[in-house]
Design a protein around this nucleic acid. Structure first.
Length: 439
DNA sequence: GATATAAACAACGGAGTGAT
DNA sequence: ATCACTCCGTTGTTTATATC
């Protein structure tokens, strides 16, 4: 077992004895390249030899904090600080405050003791120093308590227990792994008063309930809101403005609603929108559609679709306020001169934005399918290979079901979606607007 | 019927960018 | 110089649906 070091996960790739690449975890499959930053960490060995010379290591970049007692000092925003330092550009200061804790060597020697010994000899000493062989739950509990209350050179958020035998690296997948378990420290919890209840509407029409709180401090974080989840859960919990909730930090800093602590006498509750929104609503900016419409715009400018940089929720809001917005793709009809008139958008930026808009016309057809909000899983979209509206709307339920991840239910919904008058009308608009694939 | 999985969604903090 | 905004990295919870 080892302390669970609180930092930012990184994958190190060594080739020919040199650090070749350092990659953030990202979404588990693709991450950021932090190679240059990691090379500036002083404790990183300059070169490694033997089996390590060509290896892949998993570790944690952490902020050195000599004498850190977790129970007394909490997390100190260590993770955010590390992430901040790694995202900072240029080389203003050396990253001398950072260090590395290597916790896995997926294709290293079979015996854990051997892996730890070789890592230590190469200059990654921490794992060996802080790893203990355990065979009983009580031993684990003892170490856990000890690491929580005595000084360590880093912040921790629990402990990790690993089996001595690990599978080959090829079998390591995000969110899986039965050979390793974490036992986190009890989260700090606080009672917070509900000041308001907010219903947010996502692009698909899904409604989420968010409780606005009288701000409370949890460990190193200031919490003002907490996600309640579905309307159904909110109803089950049965709370309203003025009631008090128990809130803790789940995982590494996301507020979590634990329970309702106290209810007042006044049981009046706001009315949530139920059944009003779904995947076929709010393609047009009409009364009551602002929220979902905005979510749709935000989605199509996100990296998952067109990646229109620098255009977020507030930006879209400005566009919507200042210009005639009718349907989801009205932005394609705007002229550069119109964009330049918007307060808060400089002429240069307006020009640039207009160009980005124009370029989306030539973006791959599959991105336009996503932009439309088609309820089609990523894997199926890739496998379909369709490149035109004709192809995609010609598919019947059986043809859809041959794609991965699509069963009868999704196939049915897809056919309804694609032949819905609103979608047909939008596809026709895209044709008129000269978007590739809609001719 | 049980289990697995993908997708959607939420919040916070630090850094960087662009507008005023 | 200040402010508003965006981006990124962190991950738990819920739901719907596919698949075994």
């Amino acid at each position: 077992m080892q302390p669970k070091v609180d930092g930012v996960a990184v994958t190190l790739v060594y080739r020919h004895g040199q650090l070749y690449q350092a990659i953030s975890r990202g979404d588990g499959l693709v991450g950021e390249d932090w190679t240059d930053k990691v090379r500036q960490i002083p404790s990183l060995p300059k070169a490694v030899q033997g089996a390590l010379a060509n290896s892949v290591l998993q570790g944690e970049i952490f902020l050195r904090a000599e004498g850190h007692v977790q129970r007394k000092m909490g997390g100190m925003n260590a993770r955010a600080k590390v992430a901040g330092m790694l995202m900072r550009r240029g080389e203003r200061e050396p990253l001398s405050a950072l260090s590395l804790f290597i916790w896995a060597w997926p294709d290293g020697p079979a015996a854990m003791s051997e892996r730890l010994a070789q890592l230590s000899a190469a200059g990654f000493e921490l794992a060996q120093h802080y790893s203990h062989r355990v065979s009983r739950v009580q031993e684990v509990a003892n170490w856990r308590e000890r690491w929580l209350t005595t000084p360590l050179p880093f912040a921790t958020d629990g402990i990790v227990i690993r089996e001595a035998k690990e599978p080959a690296g090829a079998y390591w997948l995000p969110t899986q792994g039965t050979w390793v378990a974490a036992w986190k420290y009890e989260p700090v919890a606080q009672v917070a008063q509900v000041n308001g209840i907010h219903f947010s509407i996502g692009r698909s029409g899904k409604v989420s309930v968010v409780a606005e709180l009288e701000p409370v401090k949890l460990d190193d974080k200031q919490v003002r809101r907490v996600n309640v989840g579905s309307v159904a859960r909110w109803r089950r919990l049965d709370f309203t403005v003025g009631d008090q909730l128990l809130v803790s930090l789940a995982g590494q800093g996301i507020p979590r609603l634990d329970s309702v602590i106290w209810r007042g006498l006044d049981r009046t509750k706001p009315n949530p929108p139920v059944g009003e929104y779904h995947s076929l609503t709010c393609f047009f900016l009409t009364d009551g559609c602002r929220a979902q419409f905005l979510s749709r715009l935000n989605w199509l400018s996100s990296p998952q679709v067109f990646n229109l940089e620098g255009l977020g929720e507030a930006g879209w809001n400005r566009l919507m306020m200042a210009l005639p917005f009718d349907h989801l793709f009205s932005w394609l009809e705007l002229r550069a001169a119109q964009l330049k008139e918007i307060p808060g958008i400089a002429p240069e930026r307006a020009e640039q934005l207009w160009h980005r808009f124009e370029m989306t016309r030539r973006q791959p057809f599959r991105l336009w399918v996503k932009a439309l909000g088609t309820p089609l899983p990523e894997a199926a979209l890739k496998a379909s290979g369709d490149t035109s509206w004709q192809q995609i709307s010609a598919r019947d339920e059986l043809a859809w079901q041959r794609l991965p991840g699509i069963g009868p239910e999704r196939a049915h919904r897809l056919v309804i979606f694609l032949h819905h008058p609103t979608i047909v009308a939008l596809a026709d608009k895209l044709h008129t607007l000269g978007v590739a694939g809609f001719d």
